[in-house]
């Protein structure tokens, strides 16, 4: 049995909606079979008004033990450090976050917003939004670089916009089952078991990437090719299991012909969505991708590319995902 309190700061509720898509376990299994006790959740909680406030104050004071504090959404610090852009239960939400993070055994950030600010923190960051322990890639965020929860852990980040339901449920189950020691985190506090691999790992277009064959148009154009060359796909530079653990049990963005936006990385949305950057690969000298796959460089990339194109078999220039 583990108690969970889930609150939303500067949030869209997308991670909650994603969570509700879960199967094995689904949200009902988590509670009925795995013994997660959801003390309150904005979409699921029974209590309102004073009754809800009492749960929060009891958790903050320690009167009610809080095993896992989950935050979805940014911590809003504006205007001028007051936090009044986000009032919750009669106080700035950031005050609740401070107290509850200090009281909880384990603190989990779900989704980019809570991890590092996400879209609300995009330039010009109108609400002074930040993540729990990171601001974009910089460690610190709202709770500070040195924060550790009562269990001695930093904030566990489950990024994504939204996070995949399985990433959420499996980590919650692991925490509730006492497997905390098995959750190895990377330098961005992401569980490595999910975020060591690339979005490209398992992508159905990887053979086209191998031979440098580009998708040249959307729609029927995505029956062939790789989206990295023209449409700004970040699959080779983004760490996620999106093509290992499929979305809604069916597909992934890249499988469906949509370029990966890199939403499990702190820089999302990349280049702050500046004119000319959306769904377009940024290039140098008109042909070479400005960003090349992680761990390589332009010279190596070009050499590999030239060889790959020579080696490209005829099928790699034809439609593969046919009717």
């Amino acid at each position: 049995m583990a108690s969970v309190l889930w609150l939303q700061g500067g949030a869209c509720s997308g991670n909650t909606m994603s969570f509700l898509n879960a199967e094995e376990p689904n949200v009902v299994d988590l509670i009925v079979d795995f013994g997660l006790e959801v003390l309150w959740h904005p979409s699921l909680g029974m209590e309102l008004g004073n009754q809800a406030q009492k749960i929060f104050t009891d958790c903050a004071s320690g009167a009610k033990p809080l095993d896992i504090f989950v935050l979805e959404g940014t911590v809003i610090e504006g205007p001028a450090g007051t936090g009044r852009f986000d009032m919750f239960a009669d106080r700035p939400m950031k005050e609740w976050v401070s107290e509850l993070a200090a009281a909880a055994s384990i603190v989990v950030a779900i989704g980019d917003c809570a991890c590092w600010g996400g879209i609300p923190a995009t330039d010009p960051n109108p609400t002074d939004s930040t993540g729990l322990q990171f601001h974009k890639r910089k460690k610190g965020g709202f709770l500070g670089a040195d924060f550790v929860s009562k269990a001695g852990l930093p904030v566990i980040n489950i990024p994504g916009c939204p996070a995949h339901p399985d990433w959420i449920t499996q980590i919650l189950v692991a925490l509730a089952a006492g497997r905390t020691a098995d959750i190895a985190l990377d330098e961005l506090h992401r569980p490595q078991t999910f975020f060591k691999t690339f979005t490209q790992t398992g992508c159905t277009r990887v053979q086209f990437f191998e031979y440098k064959q580009a998708t040249l148009s959307f729609g029927e154009g995505t029956r062939t090719g790789c989206l990295f060359y023209e449409f700004g796909c970040r699959g080779p530079m983004t760490h996620s299991p999106c093509n290992r653990i499929l979305w809604n049990r069916q597909s992934s963005k890249t499988r469906a012909g949509m370029p990966c936006l890199g939403c499990t990385e702190p820089e999302f949305p990349f280049m702050d969505l500046a004119p000319g950057t959306v769904f377009k690969t940024q290039k140098v000298s008109g042909v070479i991708p400005r960003e090349v796959p992680e761990g390589t460089d332009h010279v190596t990339y070009m050499a590999h590319s030239a060889a790959a194109r020579v080696a490209a078999p005829q099928w790699s220039k034809e439609d593969m995902f046919v009717v």
Binding site: F218, T222, S252, K253, G257
Partner: peptide, 17 residues
């Protein structure tokens, strides 16, 4: 590709076939 938060509808149609 996924729900929520896909951006597969674009001016002129959809990305998928």
């Amino acid at each position: 590709g996924q729900w929520p938060h896909s951006s597969f509808m674009v001016p002129g149609g959809v990305m998928s076939a």
